[in-house]
Simulated assay, not measured.
Amino acid sequence: MANPLAQAEFRFSADAIKQLPVDTVLEVAFAGRSNAGKSSALNALTHQKSLARTSKTPGRTQQLVYFEAKPERYLVDLPGYGYAKVPEQVRLHWQQFINQYFQVRASLAGLIVVMDVRHPLREYDLQMLDFAKNRSLPAHCLLTKSDKLGRGPQAKTLLEVRKALGGVATAQLFSAETKIGIDEARKVVAGWLQL
């Protein structure tokens, strides 16, 4: 099957609501802690090596980055949260912007929450899932870096996360490195974007 996300291209970055495209498109937001593997997940899903810039430096993404998969169908990379080394003022601006984005953005078709399988469901992950829940948006969790655990621990973590989510979101194992779960995740995103 052809990859419906393979044509994704960088379009623009935004750090204010007024810079976003007309609110009649469809978009899927990708959120995650700094260094959880969000950029790697985006690259794996689109089957591109450097669509989203990966970095060893936490907090590299400092704006909403829009990638167009098909006309008026976007993948949106949100700033990494957690321990990004940024000034307090910048962090507060992100927070307000992201809050506003989730409240007013009608184009938002779903939320992918990227979390390291070894550290799932941290405070900010739960906050992101709350945004989705409050908006009745579908949410899907990618437990990245799954290759770092053996099969037993992978299955155990997945079961625990699904139980903790209680139906608020779906979850799966994922590894950009060993290609675990890429097709499954791609199907979710493509479905939300009606591709």
Rank of each mutant, 00 (worst) to 15 (best):
L143D: 05
Y81Q: 08
R122N: 11
M128F: 11
E88N: 10
G59M: 09
V65D: 10
A155T: 13
N43T: 01
P58N: 01
L165F: 05
P138S: 07
Y74A: 11
V168C: 06
G166Q: 04
G166R: 00
D125C: 09
V86F: 10
G152Y: 14
L111A: 04
S39K: 04
L121P: 09
Y101H: 11
Q127N: 13
L173N: 07
F131Q: 13
S40G: 01
L149K: 02
D130K: 14
I98Q: 07
K156I: 12
A52M: 03
A52F: 02
L51G: 00
A169D: 03
K148Y: 03
Y124P: 07
Y124S: 12
F97W: 11
P138D: 01
Q62I: 10
L78H: 04
A176I: 02
N35M: 01
R60C: 12
L158S: 01
A169P: 02
Q48K: 10
A36W: 03
H47P: 01
P138G: 08
G80K: 03
P153W: 00
P71R: 10
R105V: 12
T54S: 14
R60H: 15
T170R: 07
L111T: 06
D77G: 07
T61N: 05
Q96K: 15
V113M: 09
L92S: 11
R73T: 04
L75Q: 06
S50G: 10
I98F: 05
Q154Y: 05
R135E: 07
L165H: 05
V86N: 08
H47W: 09
T170D: 14
S34M: 06
L42E: 05
Y74R: 05
L129R: 08
E68M: 13
D130R: 15
K156S: 13
E68Q: 15
F102K: 07
V65T: 12
L149G: 00
Q154W: 02
A41W: 08
K56Q: 15
G82R: 03
C141L: 14
L158W: 01
A139E: 05
A109V: 01
Q62V: 09
A106L: 12
Y101A: 08
G80Y: 05
D116L: 04
R151I: 13
L129Y: 09
L45Q: 05
V65N: 14
Q96V: 12
G167A: 01
L142Y: 04
Q63H: 14
A36F: 02
Q48N: 02
A52H: 03
T57H: 03
G167H: 03
S34H: 08
K133Y: 15
L121Q: 10
Q154M: 07
L149M: 06
D116N: 00
A106T: 12
G167Y: 00
I112P: 10
Q48H: 00
H140Y: 14
R122D: 11
Y74L: 12
F102T: 03
G59V: 03
A132K: 08
S50I: 00
L42S: 03
Q103M: 12
L165Y: 00
C141V: 15
S50W: 04
D77I: 06
L142H: 11
A139W: 06
V104W: 09
Y83D: 11
L75P: 07
W94R: 04
W94P: 00
K56R: 14
S146D: 09
D130E: 15
A155F: 00
P71M: 08
N134W: 12
L42M: 13
S55D: 04
N99T: 10
V113Y: 09
Y74H: 06
V104E: 14
A84S: 12
P87T: 03
L92F: 02
